[in-house]
Design a protein around this nucleic acid. Structure first.
Lengths: 343, 343
DNA sequence: CTATTTTATGTAATCGATTACACAAAGCTA
DNA sequence: TAGCTTTGTGTAATCGATTACATAAAATAG
């Protein structure tokens, strides 16, 4: 008896048919109380567990949801996934996680894998891609499988998205730095083919313009999200004829690298130089010099993304509308950018 | 044509039967080259994708593997999962992740969910449990589904495990602290009903004994893995008549809390007090005062755990042996415990 | 040119659960 | 008591892919 009990086993045991067993187990009204009781008891005794694969094949619903993220082991994505999991698990969904490693081909592979695993929906944060080819995403829509972007989105018809207001966050950060007396604000930019990075860039620019500050192209440094790139970027900036007196980094890790390098050069933070990060990675508040940053509410983002998916699945008309949820970011202003203490 | 193409659709298109289509797609030798070519072309043209649910039902193998961890959003577990994913994905397995939230009931639920999702194996790191009831784990074994523990294990027959040598790590850390001149070493302990924490405790004790140092019960503080508990623990220790001059914390987060509190009390680290953590969380090397800690090789642990699973699945005899892999931990000795600089 | 082997394909069962439809038994009405 | 409902079960198809077995066609042997 190492194997599994099926409804047929129960049926045989009770000299009834599998149909009756199924009805008993599913609270179908067309069954007598006595039989139902008997079946439930026997099922329990025989340790019956429903085979969800058979159910999935029959119903066409796998109760699996695919999640694609660039990588899982950063606080942000891990927390979003946790949020998704916490919202979907009570609804009976399993979460299948794929990592794209910021690689377009890998991402296409992921989509294919999830599609023929018959997932009921795909929640994803797209990787840095050249914009050209969205063919593979169209396929998801064609198959009528809900597709929902979180954080890193792409404008597509009928596709919902859950993001934070990156423009607003960026604008506020820049404004804050200006209010602290910084007038030469450098900017560490992510890949601007991604909407989030483009939005942040626009927020930064607009805030400068609104404060009659010039945009200095030398201050715009493209970076990847890690410590070393932050260090290198500072090297470049300090070598300028007219170096900046603040950095707004769209990555906490790069912000950390910047701070390390600035300290090595004996530049006082925040007195001589302010630094602002992005993402509220745990370490930012653990540092000796705590780092100002923005919280992207990853847990909430995950939960809402899951909810948007559930709404779509459960909407009777299966309407073809894309819903757009924008969360408000929350600035965490800490020591690395606080010259004027809050009262 | 929003729907999916099945082998029947292809068969109809070509006026052959589904069996032939299946054979063509599966490189079955019993088929003519011409038919095979035709089928493959048509399948491609019609954008056929195999329905893995049907395959799973037929074969009894879902190609899903369940992973249960206390939580996903810590660097350690996220990295282990990443390792597992990287090893299993190329083999065609999907990874389904469940969080137990350190809750026994939730863990039982997870097991049940995974079992009737027909996973081909379960990889898990158990939560803090009273030892009593392992009934639910036995069921996994009975169903002949490979069960593999990583990091947090429990001694069970036929169950493989991948861990680091916690005893050894702990012994080396304690030895190191003693060599740095610390003779009153406090210990932040996790829940000792878990083997890893019991092993670490033994390593600590043995090192003290081997160095003729007394074990002071007042120095043993049970903690949970977070910053606040570390701070509170230091409060207690400093209130002792004979306070310690070092802390070995089995949690990096608690170690960080300890350091924060010690600094607030103007105690100099490492001159007057040494601190050693556990886990090599990213922040430990980012701090102004870098924190000594142990690397648990999570990525490697994940990959090896996956490999142990694959070996078990692929072993012809399906032998009932449990394999035990013990990884060697690597101490990262940093500023928080370095009085005597390495040459 | 018949007998035998090989090759390619079709037929139908199977995996486990659900459900439309059929139907028998019991209860109810007039 | 004939006729109609209601209630509870059984029968069989279905979801999509695989595969043991049967069989027709072609190739080879003698």
């Amino acid at each position: 008896m190492s194997g599994k009990t099926t409804i047929y086993d129960i049926a045989k045991e009770l000299n009834i048919t599998a149909a009756t067993v199924s009805r008993a187990l599913n609270n179908n009204p067309k069954i007598s109380q006595s039989t139902r009781k008997l079946v439930l008891e026997t099922a329990n005794k025989m340790n019956y567990k429903q085979n969800r694969l058979a159910l999935a094949l029959r119903s066409g619903k796998s109760n699996n949801v695919g999640v694609i993220v660039p990588r899982i082991n950063t606080n942000f994505f891990a927390s979003v996934i946790r949020g998704i999991e916490e919202a979907l698990h009570p609804e009976g969904y399993q979460v299948i996680i794929c990592q794209s490693h910021e690689d377009k081909n890998r991402e296409i592979e992921n989509i294919n894998t999830l599609l023929n695993a018959q997932v009921d929906g795909i929640l994803m944060s797209i990787s840095n891609l050249p914009n050209e080819n969205d063919h593979y995403l169209e396929r998801v829509i064609q198959k009528n499988i809900p597709l929902i972007f979180f954080d890193r989105k792409k404008e597509m018809e009928n596709v919902s998205s859950v993001t934070i207001d990156d423009y607003q966050a960026s604008y506020e950060i820049t404004q804050h730095l200006i209010e602290q007396g910084c007038d030469k604000i450098a900017y560490f930019s992510g890949d601007r083919t991604l909407e989030i990075y483009e939005d942040r860039y626009r927020g930064y620019q607009q805030a400068l313009l609104d404060n009659n500050l010039q945009i200095n192209e030398d201050y715009i440094i493209p970076i990847k999200s890690n410590v070393v790139e932050g260090r290198d970027a500072v090297e470049k900036l300090l070598a300028l004829e007219n170096p900046p007196n603040a950095i707004f980094s769209t990555s906490d890790f790069a912000a950390l690298g910047a701070i390390q390098k600035l300290k090595e050069r004996n530049i006082k933070i925040p007195e001589d130089f302010c630094v602002f990060g992005f993402g509220n990675e745990p370490f930012t508040k653990f540092m000796e010099l705590t780092i100002s940053t923005v919280d992207q509410a990853p847990l909430e983002m995950g939960k809402i993304t899951a909810q948007v998916f559930l709404d779509k699945i459960n909407s009777v008309g299966n309407k073809k509308t894309g819903k757009t949820v924008v969360l408000m970011p929350k600035l965490h202003i800490r020591q690395s950018s606080t010259r004027i203490p809050l009262i």
